[in-house]
Design a protein around this nucleic acid. Sequence first.
DNA 1: CAGTATCCTGATAGATACTG
DNA 2: CAGTATCTATCAGGATACTG
Lengths: 133, 133
Amino acid sequence: MIETPSPFYEFNGKTYQCPIELSIALFAGRWKPTIIYKLLDGKKRYGELKKLIEGINHKVLAEQLRDLEASGIIARHVFPTNPPKVEYELTPLGEGLRPAIDHLQQWGLQFQAEHSKTKPVANHCPELAQEQK
Amino acid sequence: MIETPSPFYEFNGKTYQCPIELSIALFAGRWKPTIIYKLLDGKKRYGELKKLIEGINHKVLAEQLRDLEASGIIARHVFPTNPPKVEYELTPLGEGLRPAIDHLQQWGLQFQAEHSKTKPVANHCPELAQEQK
DNA sequence: CAGTATCCTGATAGATACTG
DNA sequence: CAGTATCTATCAGGATACTG
């Protein structure tokens, strides 16, 4: 495996033992991957994201967006209109996550496939969409 | 009326909206990435992992290992000797994470570099190395 | 429309002690 | 050596209401 040049990686007052830990800490979480995933498709307004990400809480979406912005992964553009309009888009840094995300997606699909073999997925149950209550 | 634009991904009773969410859920967490990272280097005994991952709690390591095993990412080999010896290694599925992890690592390094430019990292503080205790 | 401020709760991490 | 069992502490996530 690749040797880590320096043993510790610091960001925002936290210390990480390897770059992966840092990466994961920055874009993991209950919703961040999904947000980034949606933004890979192009910039989106707050409300669009809210609608696209079914089940996410209003406050939580705002929080996660602020986190991602603080990490420099997304950029926030405010249009001082009335009513207000705010757009979010990936920064170049955020775009840099694309290959990693692509691989994660492929891995997720592979994982799904593996498990479908032994234990078929219950896709017959549309109520699952409501699971996050 | 819930639109179901993307299929669901289910595992272990939880539903995910996209494969990435699933992937992250499976190998994110405070320590899982680090564990996997260490195992990419080859199989390790419990005690080795404990030593390699400075700061991890005894119980937590055991838990995370069990989670990863349940997900099929790592395999556990028990040698019924005295004292007991247990080895952990990545399964083929776990190995499949390597490209994703490689990209995450690169991204983490890039991130680190970006932030070093504007806001120099406080590497002057050796106590940081001891932070996890 | 987008964003805060409270309050609450469940999942996770950690400290510690005990077991084969 | 490796693994449980408790107990506690913490914190991210969520429900809800209010604001420009």
